[in-house]
Design a protein around this nucleic acid. Structure first.
Lengths: 326, 326
DNA sequence: TTTCATATGTCAACCCGTTGACATATGAAA
DNA sequence: TTTCATATGTCAACGGGTTGACATATGAAA
């Protein structure tokens, strides 16, 4: 059996209340007693039961993180930073990989509610479900508009899309294709909008390819193949994430195209991983750690009840990293 | 205030016990009552408090996952699979990014114990701390020997190292360098051993470079630079993970070396991410999902108390993926 | 000598849901 | 008519730790 507070008290020769006082640093305790108690805890290998504590204090110190998948380097890195910051602040993280599937998100949300999380950080698409139960729950969304009451932390997607498209234009690309995720309702596609606006301004027609199952390599490649058959004139590609960009480059090479001579390619995200594995790739870098910090900042304020501002949106700066693919 | 079981009971016009019976599907309940209760729960937005439940049942259904960092694609993907499988089995995951730092691991371990996790999956180096408290706790280690009583799940590292080195030899490399992590005590370095053994057999001298701070890009590059000054004759490189391999290739290009003509490079891991971003890279692929499945299998057996076999080790098959870097 | 900060103990209520024991009621089968 | 499966209620203990109220004791300062 796991030792409990009574066992510690007995071994230390004090009352359970005193042990609790040591644990919570309340009231008067002599150093001598403190040591006795701590020794007893060490000897017994005692760990205070946070479940019992939470039940009483009504504070779980648990946060939920819902991401599409930590397999994706952007979300993997984001999750790392989020969790690291949480840990440094005494919060624990329940991880959820929703794969952007509504049913999974619903189940995860349910699970998180049952586990009395103090707040949730959401990096996933859908989650319309959230609305009806927002009530007391603190929620922050990363990069996605979820509802009017949920603050969003993102980097400057419009500016990123603009920078990317402008770069291709400046490099004299005539036929610039956008490779993006699927446009869903209620989701703002600022990178895409910036791409369209920028092309509009110089009288060019947008050519957009949508990749539906974001985390399915196969479907990605099929769609990218279509670009070459349907738009063989393509000489510039803006992919809204680096993985798409990399996939495109691979396909382009297969088609005998030279990057950047024949086609210039720019990606998006600029994760450590992709920067290391494919440092040549020109990309728009998101400040992932800063996003994580800001998201947690806001979430904690919400948890403390200090947050009232609806329609709150934080836009963090992006930066262009020019490699040799443009 | 969050609704509790009594509120549900009142609204449904039944007793709290009946609500509990509905929740746990125990005893006799008419369908009519079931529906009334479920309606009331929906109306009130009621979520059963898993904390209170756990306290009574002494089962948290919580698992701890300690990884170096989900930023790394191997661990990001591993974490994804582990979590997905856990979720499908009704387990919840507390995520810990230890960065292989002993003090952090200790803190995380402490945290997990306090949270009454049913088991822990460890993908991190150190954790000698584990020994003294192993007692009732179910633990599985991935790829690392931690103690005699902790089962290890890994892929066949020796075979992988052998295949990799043999491939370079077969491709007529004369000066084969190994880029590896730092060799620590108590850690088995089978990939390295296989490399050494394979070279020994044909009378070649191993040349080993160790990268200490695995997740520090800067230090990686510095060490790799040394290879070119100290061993300009290098014509084959076996990197024990794909990130090292990619870093080396980047450096090689900077030095005007052609891959594979001047230097052949093989990596290790074969994650989805690297396969997509750098599909040319020859690598040894680890069956990440299989590793995750097997780890959880064993962990659950431990939790159910069915596991007694000490010194248990599971070795899963690796495969060679030949790209164009060799 | 009085007073008070320090130090510790006892006790019970509380957090929320679970469970076993026991009571009661209904309707159908024997 | 008896019996029993079905259906629901009441009640209290339980899980492990927290906390407030109150009692008591000691030693030092006033």
């Amino acid at each position: 059996m796991k030792p409990k507070i009574d066992d510690v008290a007995r071994l230390a020769g004090v009352s359970p209340t005193t042990v609790s006082r040591v644990l919570n640093d309340r009231g008067y305790i002599s150093n001598e007693t403190k040591e006795k108690v701590q020794d007893a805890m060490t000897k017994l290998n005692y760990f205070p039961n946070d479940i019992a504590r939470s039940l009483y204090t009504k504070r779980s110190n648990l946060l939920g993180i819902i991401m599409p998948t930590t397999s994706n380097p952007f979300f993997g890195e984001l999750t790392f930073h989020l969790e690291s910051i949480c840990a440094s602040l005494g919060y624990k993280v329940l991880l959820c990989n929703s794969l952007n599937q509504k049913d999974k998100e619903k189940k995860y949300l349910d699970m998180l509610m049952r586990n009395q999380v103090d707040g949730i950080i959401v990096g996933t698409h859908n989650l319309g479900i959230l609305n009806y139960q927002k009530q007391n729950l603190a929620v922050v969304s990363i990069d996605r508009y979820l509802s009017e009451t949920i603050p969003v932390v993102s980097s400057d997607n419009y500016e990123g899309g603009k920078l990317a498209t402008e770069l291709l234009v400046r490099k004299s690309c005539e036929h610039i294709v956008l490779i993006d995720g699927v446009k869903e309702i209620e989701k703002s596609y600022l990178r895409r909008e910036a791409y369209i606006d920028t092309l509009d301004k110089i009288g060019k027609t947008p050519i957009i390819y949508e990749i539906p199952e974001v985390f399915n390599v196969q479907s990605q490649q099929e769609i990218i193949e279509n670009i070459f058959s349907e738009h063989p004139e393509v000489d510039g590609v803006f992919a809204t994430n680096d993985i798409f960009a990399a996939s495109f480059i691979t396909a382009a090479k297969r088609h005998g195209k030279k990057i950047p001579e024949d086609i210039k390619v720019i990606g998006y995200d600029g994760t450590e991983t992709v920067r290391t594995v494919l440092p040549d790739l020109t990309t728009i870098r998101q400040p992932i750690e800063m996003i994580a910090k800001e998201a947690i900042n806001i979430l904690l304020k919400e948890i403390e009840g200090e947050f009232t501002d609806p329609l709150h949106e934080t836009k963090l700066p992006i930066s262009l990293i020019e490699g040799s693919t443009t």
